[in-house]
Structure formats: C-alpha cells, structure tokens
Write a protein that binds this DNA or RNA. Sequence first.
RNA 1: GCGGGUGUGGUGAAAUUGGUAGACACGCUAGACUUAGGAUCUAGUGCUGCGAGGCUUGGGGGUUCGAGUCCCUCCACCCGCACCA
Length: 1116
Amino acid sequence: MEYNFSEIEQNWKKYWIDNKVYKVENDTSKPKYYILDMFPYPSGDGLHVGHPLGYVASDIYARYKRLCGYNVLHPMGFDSFGLPAEQYALEKKLHPAVTTEVNIKRYKEQLDNIGFCYDWDREVRTSDPNYYKWTQWIFLQLFHSWYNRKTDKACKIDELTAIFEEEGNQSQPCPADDKCIFTAQDWSNMSVTEQRGIIMKYRLAYQGYAQVWWCEALGTVLANDEVVNGVSERGGHPVERKNMRQWFLRITEFAERLLASLDTLDWSEPMKEMQRNWIGKSNGAEVKFQILTGAPADADVHQVTVFTTRPDTIFGVDFLVLAPEHSLVAQITSDAQKAEVDKYVQYVKSRSERERQAEVKLITGAFTGAYAMHPLTNSPVPVWISEYVLASYGTGAIMGVPSGDERDHRFAKHFNIPITNIFGDSYTGGEAYSDKAGTIQNSGFLSGLSVATAAEAAISTLEKLGAGSRRINYRLRDAGFSRQRYWGEPFPIIYIDGVPYATDEAPITADATLSKLPVELPWVESYGPGSEGQGPLANITDWVNVTSPPAPLHEWRGEQSSNAGALADNDHRPIYSGIPRYIIKVRHSFESARTNRRNLTESEAIVWANIRGNKLGAKFRRQHPIDAYIADFICLQKALIIEIDGEYHDNEEQQKLDNERTRVLEEIGFKVIRFTNEQVGKQLNEVLSAIRKELSSRPNLLTDAVADSDSEFHVTSSPLVERGPGGEVAQRETNTMPGYAGSSWYFLRYMDPNNTAEFASRGATDYWQQVDLYVGGTEHAVGHLLYSRMWTKALCDLGFIGFDEPFKKLLNQGMIQGSSRFVYRVGTDKFVSAGLAKDYDGVPMRVHVDLVDGLELDMERLKNWRPELANATFVTEADGRFLCTAEVEKMSKSKYNVVNPDDIVAKYGADTFRMYEMFLGPIEMSKPWDTKGIEGVHRFLKKMWRLYADEQVGWVVTDDAPTDAELRILHKTIKKIGEDIERFSFNTSVSQFMITVNELSTLGCHKKAILAPLAVLICPFAPHIAEELWHKLGHTTSVVGAAFPVFEQKYVTENTKVYPVAINGKTRCEMEFALDAPQAEIEKEVLGNEIIMKWTEGNAPKKFIYIKGKMINVVI
RNA sequence: GCGGGUGUGGUGAAAUUGGUAGACACGCUAGACUUAGGAUCUAGUGCUGCGAGGCUUGGGGGUUCGAGUCCCUCCACCCGCACCA
C-alpha cells in the first residue's frame, strides 16, 4: 500500500465538498476567529506558485484554530474590478465580465486544487452587482456624512445643516475652505443650490478638482509613473495637465485618529511606520509675510503664508519659496521678472511629479521680483519659486533658511543668495546645520535658546503680532475616488443641471427606477475612452442621459397634465422659470388635495382666512400637491410652504416624518415653515408676522428671477419634469470608483454575504467583529489598508458596526521570486554551455524554466520550444550536459520563469506543495522558488506514510502501548508545532515534522497511540494525507473536526542534561549531569575531566560559570 | 535625498530570553539494494589542516565569562516614496 497522493487527494476533496465540511455558520455558541487573506485580482494568467504562499499560511492557521475549538471564518473572494480586464477587453474585444468570469473559474479550480478550507458559499466578488450595490450604498453614507471635529466622529449631514441653521459654521469650520464662514442668517438666505455647494465642502465623499495627466493620443488619463519626460511611457505621446472634476474621500479628517489608533493594532512596526510616514503629522507654525513690492493693491493677496516645522529658525530666513503653481505667483511677479517666471512655470508644467521628486541634485527656480517683509525684523526678503516646493503640501510656500536646511542651503548657494548664520560655530558655511542640538544664535530675542524653547517663543511672539500661529500639518491628502474607466463601480449619482444628487435624494427618489441600487454597470460593446478625458461610460448616451422615465409615471403624467398644477410636460410659461420644479409623485394626491380643501381644520381655516386673496401681498394656494406631499399652504411666487402641524411637537414618529418631508421639499428648493395649532389659536399675530417676515426676505420669483440673471436664487429642478424629447438635463456620473472601493469593506460582507437587505446584519458583524488575522503583502501598506481603516471608522461612527478598526493583527507574507534560466546564445541558433561561454562571443537568452532541470537544459525540448530553434546546435560540457545560468527575478510570464502550482500538485500532490511552500523559509521573507528542493518534502510525506502503511504488507498500525521515548517524541512535537503555529513559524514546524518522522522511523514505531495524534497535528499542513490516515485509523468523521492533541509536560521532563563544557567560551567537550546536581560536584567533575585538564593544565580556573540547564564555562 | 527591510555553508535555511553556530532539507561524494533508478536505505559533507588545532554568521571596532543575537561605525543588496519644509 503505497502513498498514492493523487488518488487520496481527489477522494478527500470530493468528500469535503459533498459533506460541506468547510461550511461556516454564524454560531454564537463557539468563540469566533476570523482569518482573512487579501483577496486576489483574478488575472488572465492564473495563479503562480507565489500567490498561494499567504493562503497556505492562513489556511494552516485557520485549520489549527478550528482544531483548537474555534468557529473559524476563513473566506475567499475576488477583487474582480480592475484595469487589466479592461485593457484585455480593448485588445481582444472580450467583455470584462466574460473574462473575469473565466478567470475566476480558473482561480477557484487552482485554489481548490491546493486544498484550502474555504466556504465558497461566502465568496464575494467586487464586480457582482449584489456586492457593489453595497459599495455604492456605503458611498452614499459617506456622501451624506461629514466629520464633526468637536465629537471627532463622522455624522449625518442632517446634523450639520441643523447646526448651520442654528449658528452658522462658526463652530464647525469648513475643512475644504477656511475662507468659507457664514452665520445662521447667511445660511437661511442661501438658495438650496448654494447650500448644497457649502455642504459639498463638508461631505466625506465629495467632489473637487484635481489635475491629471491627459494623453490625447491614448485617449486616457495616465498615472504619474506612466508619464516620463513629459510624454506617455507607452508610445511616447504628448500629455497635458488637465483639471478634472473628481470624487474624493475626505480621509484627511481622520488623520489624527488613523495615526493614534495604530498603537492599538498588532501590526509589524515597519508597517505601522509606513502608515505613520504616509499620514505625516508635523507640528509647526504658519507664518504670514506681507508682500512689499510687486504686489497688487488688493489687501487679500498682500501676504503669503508659509508653513514651517522650525519656527525657531525664523531669524535665519533669507528668502521665501512658493510652489510654481501657487496662486500668488502671477500676481506678485514684477514686470522685469515676468518673462523668466513664465518660462520657469512652463518648464515645471512639463515635469512629471516623479521627476520633480527624484532629481534632488537638480536645483532650479526663478526670482519673482517681489519682496516680502519679515514679520519680526521688518527687513525685505526676496520671494522665489521653485519646483522643490509642492503646492499640495502645507501652504504651498516655505521660508528658506539656508543655514538650517540642506535643500534651502543648496538653493541659496546655487542662486547666490546671502546666507544668515543663526547657529554660530555649528554652521561653517559648507553645509546646513539641521541638527536640533545646541542653541539659536544671531536671532534677536531667540538668541541663546534651545531649539524647542525658541520655537515656542517664536510662535507666541508671532501670535501676539498676528503674524502667525501654531499649526499641526498632515501630509496625508484626500483620496481621489474617481477613475475614468469602465470596469468599476458606477457612482449612484445623477447630475441635474450640473448639480450632483445622490440617487437616494429627493429629486431622484421620485423615480423608483433611478433611485434603485445598484446602479448597474451597463453592458457595452466598446470600452474606448470618452471625449475630454471622460471614462468609457460617457459614450453610452442612452445610459448617461436619463431620458426615459418609468412608463406608468410617464403615461399618467400625460393624461393628468391639466390637473398637474405647476406641472405640465409642455409647460413653458415664463412664470415658472424661476420657481422650483417639482412633480406630484402619487396619483391620488390630487383627489386627497381636493378632499382636504373641503375639510379644513380649525387652525387651517383661521390661517387661510388671513392670507387668502393676496392679503399678505403674495398669492397663496392651499392643500397643494408637491412631490409626494400635499402642502398646507404654498406661495409659489416665493417658494414658501406653510405647514400647520397638529402633532409635530409632541409625537416623535410624526416629527421624523415631517422632518423628512421638510428635507425633501427643501431639496427641491422650497422653504418650509411650520406652526402648531396652538400657536395659530393663541398667537395668530406672531404667526402672521413670521409669515410676512419670511415673505419679505425671499426674492420674488415670478418676475425678478427671470429678469435678474445675477440673482442669488438658482433653480433647482426636478429631473422628472425636465425630461422630454430633446430636453434632458439629468445625467449619470460617468466615472467609476477605483479599485480600493470594493476592497475597503469586503471583510464585512463575508460575515453575511447573501444579505439582500443590508451590507451585513448587525448580528453578524457583532459576532465576527474585526478580522483577527489578516494576511497579505506589504504593497498595500498605505493604500488599501489605510482606506479600509477609514471606511471602518466611518461606518462605526455612523452606527452601522460596533468596531472602528478592521484588522486586529496583520501578517505580511514575502514575495516568491522567480528563478530565471539563461542559455548562452552565439549567433541565431548555436548555444554554448555555461562552463564554456567565456570562450565564445554571444549573449545570454532567457529560456523557460520548464525546459531546465536544475541547471541542466533539456536540449531536445528547447528545439521544440519555438520553431526558430528547431535547428539549434549545442556546445556541451565534457560530460555531454548543457548547463544554464540562473538569476533571481520577479516571477512573470515575460521572464519565462512562472511556475504553475497545478503542475507541482500534479507531480507531487497538494500536501507536498503546501508543506514545501512553508518549508522555504519564514513567511514574511521574500525568496526565490526552486522546484528542486521539493523532493525532500515529498520524501518526508512518503516516509511518514510508511509509519502507517507498508508497500508490501499494507496497514501496519498496532495497538501496542507506546514507550517513554516514543511519548517524549510525540509530546515534544505537540509542543513545538503548537508554539510554531502560534508564532507563524511554519518553516520550523515542517522541520519538526521531519525530525519527528525520522525519529519514529528509527524507533520503528507503528503505534496508534502515537500515530493518531500525529495525523491530527499534521492536518493543518497536509490535510489530505491527514484525512486519509484519520479514516484508516477507524474514524468516520473528518479530521478537520478533531481536537488538537494536548501537550503533557510529564512526558518530556528530563532529569539530566548533557552540558556543553567550554573553556573561555569555546566548547571543548560535553558532560552529562543531573539537573539537581550541586555546583560543587559539577565543578569538581568538570575540572577533573581529561579534556578540560588538558586546557587548564592543572591550574585552578579564574572563574567557573555554571548556568543550570544551559552550559558550563571555565575561564582560565 | 528620505523611510523601511535584509546580509549565516555550494543552495533554502535553523538557533524563541546573550549560552554547543549551521538543526531540517536541497545539492554533492561514497556505498547497499535493484532489470533499471529521477524509488528506497546507509555513511560523509562550513572552510582549512596529516593531526592537535586554527578560522568562520557582510567589513571594522566595542560591551560580556560568553555575541549571529546587544552597542558604535562602515559596506552591499532589496522594497517603497508624495523633495513633506
């Protein structure tokens, strides 16, 4: 009975599927453990042996935790939106949805082939509408949220507008625009569109502008690193900077929290360090310099604000440097310098970000001709521009302190700017003194102070003068959230007259079809880019332009148009051009309104009697349908609605409904004011004067708005009324979301993957909580990991989940590199073996690793590899072999060094493959793949198999009682394996298994008492063979559900120790002593030892060191 | 330029708190068994030396009875970068 791995593995894979062994329930009776791999992008190339490294590690850990009694969630899915599928589609004319489907199928086969314990019922795919529905939904939550700096939490926009109504934005400064300051009165006077503009500056998902590289020839937007020397990397086409409206996530508001809570995470220090660097918190000061010359009269631009982390060096300022993109540059540049500055600005525009960053030694810049006044010395300071100052960091301007900053120093030297020394002897003129030791000199009232003290003193003086203030700066920037691509999540956003609305906002919700999530990605035949840098979706005009309303609504509107009040399809009367457009959503609104008019309440009757017939100078209608509601009284001329509420103030439910109604009506553009029955009854005069006041504060829309195009009031129109032949104004957003959208929250979806009502139920997220162990590569250090942390915090703040960090522990796996093989090629088809290559004049050529065994080339296969090599001739070594050379490189198809795990599994089995991947070395280290080494692991499994079954005799396991030696081996192994798995040292676990099997083989052990626990121990590593042995041992249920063997100290306790005995720390011999032997006795025996005596030559040692249980050292 | 990481036999590596450096494998050498060996088993294998021994964890220095491990310094390689003021 030999180890027939392929048969064994086939059988158990089928058994696991048939019996749903890996099905995971949300079972609250067991402790949970959530272990997750960073899900793969299913590329067309399939998995290579590098991909599963982390998956094997997490699978081992998952199986181990399950053996230890945990309910383990260990899911897998696919990050299936992305650029490669789209590019493939462009080239091959295959729809991304099709290729993605095919690729995922292949990936799943490959993954299953390796024997992972995934519950595929929980699989998620980011490109699945059932999944991205919730990505869009979360986007909407972010859109409807802002960051409350007082409570340090993401909050709903409703709360923000309540604050604005109450007190303006004094207590909640605008994160995007510190010049945006307004009072409650200002707020109430704004139009809805203006208010929306303000709110946009607060939203967590917001629209702004960003410069992107646009390449006309390629028709796409390029990433920074795709632009080299001002042309596209691919094809060398010209590129230009283009300012484009883009979505952003306001991650900067979370900077401090993202930084602070890193301390609570069990991540590697380098990983945390990378995030800290990315967030880049720095304490410093803002300093204002008044522009002296070359400045326009306008006081607003009379000063330039710089940010510095070294306010203590303020007296060392010899010049200011603005980013060439700084908005002041054009205004302050003197006529004399204009040509030079323009030329320089043009030069910088041609430079890619990468180049500006990488070429440190290249010093460029231009003098603006302007001078600024030093706030403390009042002396003039020249203002320069240079590409080394970035517009996007700090204030986009710095103060140049050449004696204290190396870059400033180089700049001053290069342009011959005189340098002020503020460090005394520490600065010698050769290079800047940037150490923070010593004292500041030559600096007025700061002279003699240490750096820290001087910084404080400088800031407080500047504050007193009103010339500066303390400031904490983060280098983290808001995350660009739009891509001009097809294969990504569409935004649930519709533009009405250019104003973006979420699909769950009033004007859109009127149409059930438009407001429905998901906004499905339309099927297209062409993936070419749209014009003007837009994404491919812009080409699908049928989809972009919202032209065909849902049929029933449309039909109904036509037949009822005479009753539709302000609404008629052909209603082009100018009277309505300034009035908010709206639609009556519910058919029976008209009947209800008519009925209501006949049945006024007492309060309503009183109000009506006082406002009817232009009594307040404006015409009111009563019981008028608006959108889905019926307004009590409405003045269309002033877009004012009066509500008389019976229950508003004492019924919470009613209050909620009414607030929603107010919100919707105000979104459309009406102002809603409400009064109680009681107010009308007892304080009618106050009510009427409040109405009068409201009327007088609002513009008259009937005539003024039409005539006065500069009016503050802008029309907010409902998309529904605007639709009609040729009259479309509503468009869908044509950008799609970036790759990290779907991956920012996928870990939550696994908890409750098939939920159609929520992204995940609160019960599920409360049970599974954070990911206990997250396994993936370091390449996601600052992208994915930072974004998902932000999303988690936002979802937590908004009350959707109960934890604010996604990944408790992080394990970074290293890369498996490829090992490329080269043959030495002379001419076209003559090849020379490596040993003789030096005698020939040729070049190395990559050959596929499959053609090579170790370093020995299979010459026949090379001839068949490619047609042009069919007549190849070979100069071999003396023994007839042809040798290649090897080089470690990235594993990639183009380097012919990709090894497919399927091939390895076919040849050696999945168990061997899994163990070998682990045996290669520590999980977090990168290492090259070498198929040769796998033999050792395969031999080990065969050797282990022979403990249980003999090739000739068959099953050999006995019920004999184990010996002490056998028990010691077993328990030593239990301890080692358990400890190793806990600390993710899987390579040493594999070694230990080898040692154990070697020792048991030597002892000829075939005892069930030893071999049954061994089968369980190895199950996480080699599940197939473990399952086979477990069943052969008589069990009828899966080994997956067994219990991890319990380590017992008593079996491994020894009472003697073989000590290394060293002379001066150099081991010379070994001697065995009882562990409880007294030192005197040991000393006597050691010094009497023949070998030791040879070294001591009979002399008494200077020192005798005895560390119990460790070693003995004799110092002579 | 900045930040992070890694340097141990021919190769992958081990040494968990400062305590026998090179476990466990690959490869290689020799042998056994065999029709065969790309199966299996046995022995050997850091370098050097006949040997006693000497040398050896990227180089140099230090702390210690004792250093791969701690400290200083230099070097090489890999990864990332948004010149971060």
